[in-house]
């Protein structure tokens, strides 16, 4: 079972591909795009099969629509204030709710200063298909830990979810190539939203355009483009 899956790691799979147990079922963890169906494993998304030790498998696909998942950090836009919750647009099929108490140092007396239209970097604590998704801006110890409302300035844009995951991967090559050019601040949400702030608007736009264009490039093409741009930008 694990062998036939292991042989396919790094290959492109299509929905409808099935792996069936030949011997005794082993323990394995199915990530996004894989479903356990009785004695077999069904692929339900197109993409590349990935593997992580010891027995985790998932499909890496290039979709654009975000589906909330528990524990993921996203950039949301506050769209409404109603009573004690904020409604936040995260790009999913419904608005997520964010309690005003879920900020660092917030109490009933001391409300956080959040206006409609603000951006928040927050994490899902409830996200499943049957319930309204819920966000928080604190970790389990009650610390902000980098989450909360964004300051003024900066530029928000959308990229594909596949690119976002490549940016967030440890030792991402794209980020390493980008940061050689000039200093800038970047926040990447798993919902495909990226926020960039640089010393000038022009530089922020350069980063945004580069990220959008390097999605379908090989490493050599990307490095050539970055070199050309940094010669022009300096």
């Amino acid at each position: 079972m694990a062998d036939c899956l292991k042989d396919k790691v790094g290959e492109v799979l299509l929905p409808g591909d099935v792996f069936s147990f030949e011997s005794k079922p082993e323990k394995l963890i199915c990530g996004p795009g894989l479903r356990r169906n009785g004695d077999e494993i069904l692929v339900c998304k197109s993409g590349i099969l990935r593997h992580k030790q010891p027995n985790m498998y998932w499909i890496d696909s290039q979709q654009r629509r975000y589906v909330p998942a528990k524990g993921e950090s996203v950039i949301g836009i506050v769209t409404a204030k109603s009573g004690d919750v904020f409604k936040v647009d995260v790009g999913g099929s419904e608005l997520a709710s964010l309690s005003y108490l879920a900020f660092e140092g917030a109490t009933k007396r001391n409300r956080p200063n959040v206006q409609v239209g603000d951006l928040v970097y927050s994490q899902f604590i409830i996200a499943n298909k049957d319930m309204e998704p819920e966000l928080v801006c604190i970790d389990s110890c009650g610390r902000a830990n980098g989450m909360g409302v964004f300051g003024a300035g900066g530029l928000l844009f959308k990229v594909s979810l596949g690119l976002v995951r490549r940016l967030l991967a440890p030792q991402s090559e794209i980020v390493r190539d980008l940061e050689k050019m000039f200093p800038f601040e970047m926040v990447v949400g798993l919902n495909g939203r990226v926020w960039v702030k640089a010393s000038s608007t022009q530089r922020a736009l350069i980063v945004a355009n580069l990220l959008e264009s390097c999605e379908n490039m090989t490493a050599q093409q990307r490095q050539a483009l970055f070199r050309r741009v940094s010669d022009g930008a300096s």
């Binding site: 409808g16 795009g33 696909s61 654009r64």
Partner: peptide, 11 residues
């Protein structure tokens, strides 16, 4: 549908 990444049982 495949490009959108929607879950499908078969093609």
């Amino acid at each position: 549908l495949m490009d959108a990444g929607l879950p499908m049982g078969c093609l």
